[in-house]
Amino acid sequence: MNGPVTLPRVADTRVDLLLIADMIPSRSRVLDVGCGEGDLLHVLSTQKDVDARGIEISQAGVNACVSNGLSVIQGDADIDLVDYPDQAFDYVVLSLTLQATRNPRRVVEEMVRIGRHAIVSFPNFAFWKIRLQLLTRGQMPETQLLDEPWWETPNIHLCTIRDFEDLCRDLNLVVEKRVYLNRDGTATWFSSIEQLGNLFAQQGLFLLRRA
């Protein structure tokens, strides 16, 4: 089953998920929104003794998770986050799913409401190859990360790293950490330089909290 984007895996786990797992201390309470087949939840609950829960939109993903003993419900980031009480979790994770939500701004707001921290990753639409494709071909770009044609992609709200920084400022959020990622999900060497990140990173990964 594919999520909104296609990514390489190492030892059966997406590399960028391991970076996310590194941001989360042991024994925290975590909600993974759009948890797919539960890779991150599995790493967190088996290696870090985390109280890990998930929401997944596809029933097949949910059933796979629950069959593996993970606590997951069928639900939608746009609809179901409102049910949770304030600060119910230490971390709320949204990995490569923001661009597939109907109302990304509202989703991020909900995440920092129900979690003390939010971890958001998304494909960077300002990546140089994307810019180049649009410039030279004049057509919607397709990259390894965003590999579906415009008419069937679930990614309806693509943004750039700079756009996301703007949104965080707008929502008065503190960016506790930003990591710029390569295509394979590893961190780039220029992770502190926004200019380079917006041009050369395929993916942005942000650790946020309310100011």
Binding site: Q59, V66, V72, I73, Q74, A88
Partner: peptide, 18 residues
Amino acid sequence: IVRALNAEAANVSFVEIE
């Protein structure tokens, strides 16, 4: 039921079987 349990941030799994 699930929504009510979410409102309590309870540990809940929910599966609808086809």
